[in-house]
Amino acid sequence: MNTNRSLPRRAALAATAVASALALAGCGSNDSTSTTGTRPLTTATPASVQDNRHNQADVTFAQEMIPHHRQAVLMSDMVAAHGASADVKALAERIRKAQVPEIETMTGWLRAWGEKVPTGMGMDGMGHGNGDRDGSGMPGMMDAQGMSRLGGARGNAFDTMFLTMMIEHHEDAIDMAETEKQQGAYGPAKDLADAIITSQTAEIAQMRQMLSAGRP
């Protein structure tokens, strides 16, 4: 009699035990998944890869701006030996300090991209650029005759010629930088273009003021 009454109770206990075991197994399975650190697959491109994307506009910007900067540095190096004023010397030194590191930076980009690095102040027949002044295919470069005239000037005449030529030089650099901002894809190159526009626009304003004051 006692045995018969206990049968339903035993069946209920057995069902409860089975349900508990299944619940524990489910928890164990979830714990195992989280322990292995399994994450859903993603197709997002890593930021480091995105940041390294560049296009032909970026390559052209670096290949043209490097020789352009080199000529500005050469013009700045001429200041000390030509009796320039203190203001012009200070300006030339600032230009040099800004553009030499930028040349190094752009050279590093071209090497990393497997692209040709220009030598000297020409494009080595690479055929980039339009509207050049020196006939080399480089935009905004001063021609040999102009550089020779600058080299032969002294004192106030040198200062006036230097400032006039450097204003034109900066204006061409700004045009090149604007093109990079519009057409480039490489973030650091677009940032450099923006910095060139900002700094050289300010220097143009300073040089025009120096010329209008008649005390370069």
Rank of each mutant, 00 (worst) to 15 (best):
R5P: 04
A11R: 10
L22F: 06
L24T: 02
G26C: 05
S29N: 04
S32W: 12
S34Y: 14
T35D: 03
T35F: 08
G37P: 02
T38M: 10
R39P: 01
A44N: 13
P46C: 05
A47R: 12
H54N: 11
T60F: 13
R70I: 00
L74E: 13
S76A: 12
M78C: 01
V79C: 10
A80C: 07
G83D: 11
A84T: 11
A84L: 09
S85K: 04
A86W: 00
D87S: 15
A90P: 03
L91Q: 01
A92C: 08
E93P: 02
E102C: 01
E104A: 11
T107F: 00
T119N: 05
G120I: 06
D124Y: 00
D124H: 02
H128D: 11
R133L: 09
M141N: 04
G146Y: 06
M147R: 06
R149A: 12
L150H: 05
R154T: 14
N156P: 15
F158R: 07
T160S: 15
A173E: 00
A173C: 07
A173M: 00
A173L: 01
I174F: 01
I174V: 12
D175T: 15
Q182A: 14
Q182F: 04
Q183V: 06
A185F: 08
Y186F: 15
A189L: 07
D191C: 02
L192P: 00
A193W: 01
S199C: 03
Q200G: 04
T201M: 09
L211V: 06
G214E: 07
